[in-house]
Simulated scan of single mutants.
Amino acid sequence: MNIYKEFGARTIHNLAGASTRVGGPILAKEVADAMVNASTLSVDMTELQASASEYISKITGSESAYVTSGASAGLTMAAAAILAGLDPSKMENLPSVKDNKNEFIISREHRNGYDHAFRLAGGETIEVGMNEILSGAGVRRTEAWEYESVVNEKTAGIVYVATQDSEPPFEEVIKVAKKNNLPVIVDAAGQLPPRENLRKFIEMGADLVAFSGGKAIKGPQSSGILCGKKDYISSVALQSLDMDEYYEIWNPPSNLIDKSKISAIPRHGIGRGFKVAKEEIAGLLVALRLFIEKDINAEMANCKKYLSIIDDKIKSLPNIETSINTPSNSEEYPTLNIHTGNIDAFELCNSLKIKSGLFLNEKGLSENFMTVHPMNLSDDNIEQISDVLHNDIKEYIK
C-alpha cells in the first residue's frame, strides 16, 4: 500500500536527514503502532500531558515537561510562559504585553528564521554582539558581558540557540542570567544526538529547553519537547490545552498544573493553535523510549556501512570525489560528501530531485558538493538507492 500514491503524491528518497521539507525520519514500527493504538482509545488530554511530563522529566532531569507541536511551537510557548506566568489576565492579552516587559536578549550570531517564535508570543528580540568574523572585520565573537550591557526594566529573558560551537559558552550566559534574575530559553531543536544533551542544558541552569521530536528522536514530525521549571510548564499547559472547563469541577493533575496557584481558568490561550493530538503524544513517548534505549553505536556503524556502499558505487565516476565524515562523538551521524568538480552541484542536485526523487542535503551546494545523510537508509533500501544514485549521476555527466 502507498497512501501517497493513492492521493496523487509521489514518494521520494530522503537522503537529506531529518529535514521537515522532505518528511523527516521514517517512523519505527513501534512508533507507528503506538499511534494507531492511541487512535482507537479516548483519553483526558490534560491527564495525558501530565503522564508525558512525568516520563519526560525523568529522562531530562527537569521539574516538568510538555509535548509540543514541534520545537518552534515550544519556543513560542516558552516565551508566552515567561511573559504571562500564571496570570490568566496576562494570558488573555498575549501577544499584547501591557507592562512592556517583553524583551528577549539574543546574540546576533544566534538570529535565524525561527525568531518568529518569540515575536508570535509578544516578545521582542534584542541583539547583542557583532558578526565580525563573518564580515572579516575582527576575530571575536559575542561575549557574555554584552548580554548584561542591555539588561533593563523591559528585559523578560535570554534566548540561547545551541549548536556545537555556539558562543559565548553557555555557562557564561547562565551566570549573567542568574545575576540579573532572568530566565533562559534554550533552542536545542537539533542538538540530538548525543543523548546527554537531553539533560545537559537543564543541569547547567536553563529554565526552559526546546527539542524537536521529529529529528533524531524519530517521533512524529510535528512533535517536540519543552522541558524546564514547573511553573513555566504549567503556564504552557494553561495556554495550550482546551480550557472550556468549570473551575469548580476542574481537576488537573498537580504534577502538571497546581490549581492552588491560579485563581481562575484562562480562556483558550495563544497556544491553542499548537494543538498536539493524543496519537502524536503516544508516538513521541515511544520514540523517546527507543531513542534512549537503543544501541546507538551499532546504529552508527550500520550508517557508515550504508555510506560505504554508496561511496563504492559512485567514487569512480568522472569528476566525482567522495569523502565520508565520521564525527568524533560516536553518537553522531556520519555523512558522505559528494564533490562534483567542474559539474554544477546545484544543477546536478536539482536533476536528482526531479528525475528520481533523490533529495540530498544541500548545505554544501555553494561549495560544489552534496551530502548524503544516512538516517533513512536501511538494509531494505540501500541497494536500490545506491544504484539509482549511481545511474542518475552517470547519466547526468554524459
Rank of each mutant, 00 (worst) to 15 (best):
L317P: 06
S351L: 10
L307Q: 02
L348V: 14
N302H: 14
P318L: 07
S328C: 09
C349P: 08
T326A: 06
H339Q: 14
L307I: 03
A301D: 06
N337Q: 13
S308A: 04
S323Y: 13
K304G: 05
A301N: 13
I343Q: 03
P334H: 02
C303E: 10
T335V: 12
G341Y: 10
N329C: 02
L336I: 03
P327L: 00
N350S: 10
L352W: 10
I343T: 01
E332D: 08
I324G: 05
I314Y: 06
S351M: 15
I324Q: 07
S308E: 09
K315G: 00
K313S: 07
N319K: 14
D311P: 06
L317S: 02
N297Q: 15
S351A: 15
K305P: 07
N325L: 08
N350L: 11
I310H: 02
I314S: 01
P334F: 01
T340Q: 07
D344V: 09
I314M: 05
I314P: 00
C303D: 15
Y306A: 09
S351R: 15
F346I: 12
D311T: 06
N329Q: 10
F346W: 15
I343P: 10
N342Q: 05
S330L: 11
N319A: 13
K304W: 08
E347R: 02
